[in-house]
Simulated assay, not measured.
Amino acid sequence: MSNVQLSARPEIDLNQFLPYRLNRLADCISDKLSQLYAEKYGLNVAQWRVLAWLSHGDNLTAKAICVHTNMDKVRVSRAIQSLEERKLLVRSPSPGDQRLQVLNLSDAGQDLLAELIPQAQAWEAELVGVLTSAEYRDVFNIMGKLERQLATGLR
């Protein structure tokens, strides 16, 4: 037998690693929710996110949606083009800068969201129904703290 000792290989228990668990949970939630708007409305995740951000107000640019959704420019651009082809949103030149295109929900887009948003909110309510109101509030407080920590420039 050899006297060579093998060094312990570093390992990580991903089930106890917060970034992994949060990502897995987010993916699972997104996948389950996407079934609602994919089956009934023919929307993919990117299209839903664009529409959801446009529900907050008019005159958003594709760049602003990229920032808000953390989706890349190509994915947002494809979603916008598809939504425009379906006449769910309209693009027009920005009054302040003709180089920019602003996005607004069309009447059809507003009608779709008027039906879809309550269903998405009901789905969320069912998901978080296992939490007390204090736990629900704590989840958002904790996420806010982690987001602020990341915003400080944590590598």
Results as ranks from 00 to 15, higher is better:
residue 20 Y to V: 08
residue 110 Q to D: 07
residue 70 N to V: 12
residue 42 G to R: 03
residue 133 S to V: 07
residue 56 H to Y: 14
residue 74 V to R: 07
residue 87 K to G: 06
residue 70 N to M: 10
residue 76 V to F: 03
residue 129 G to S: 09
residue 102 V to T: 04
residue 112 L to F: 00
residue 2 S to R: 09
residue 141 N to R: 13
residue 117 I to G: 00
residue 19 P to H: 05
residue 83 L to R: 04
residue 10 P to N: 01
residue 58 D to S: 11
residue 117 I to A: 08
residue 79 A to D: 04
residue 76 V to N: 01
residue 53 W to A: 10
residue 40 K to E: 13
residue 148 R to H: 15
residue 67 V to S: 08
residue 120 A to R: 01
residue 37 Y to T: 00
residue 10 P to H: 04
residue 141 N to M: 14
residue 109 G to T: 02
residue 57 G to L: 01
residue 109 G to K: 08
residue 69 T to D: 02
residue 120 A to K: 02
residue 135 E to I: 07
residue 61 T to W: 03
residue 21 R to P: 01
residue 138 D to M: 14
residue 70 N to P: 01
residue 53 W to D: 15
residue 15 N to T: 13
residue 9 R to Q: 14
residue 126 E to M: 10
residue 41 Y to H: 11
residue 103 L to E: 04
residue 42 G to H: 04
residue 30 S to E: 09
residue 20 Y to C: 11
residue 17 F to I: 02
residue 137 R to S: 11
residue 107 D to I: 09
residue 135 E to S: 10
residue 87 K to Y: 05
residue 3 N to L: 15
residue 21 R to G: 03
residue 98 Q to C: 07
residue 7 S to I: 12
residue 95 P to N: 06
residue 29 I to L: 15
residue 6 L to Y: 11
residue 105 L to G: 02
residue 82 S to Q: 12
residue 125 A to T: 07
residue 68 H to V: 05
residue 93 P to H: 05
residue 97 D to R: 12
residue 23 N to Q: 10
residue 33 L to T: 07
residue 90 V to C: 06
residue 78 R to P: 02
residue 25 L to E: 09
residue 9 R to V: 11
residue 18 L to G: 05
residue 101 Q to E: 14
residue 86 R to L: 11
residue 154 L to N: 06
residue 121 Q to V: 08
residue 113 L to Q: 01
residue 61 T to N: 06
residue 109 G to M: 01
residue 85 E to H: 14
residue 57 G to R: 02
residue 46 A to T: 01
residue 95 P to G: 04
residue 45 V to G: 04
residue 17 F to C: 04
residue 129 G to F: 10
residue 83 L to V: 05
residue 147 E to S: 12
residue 101 Q to V: 04
residue 31 D to G: 02
residue 1 M to Y: 06
residue 45 V to L: 11
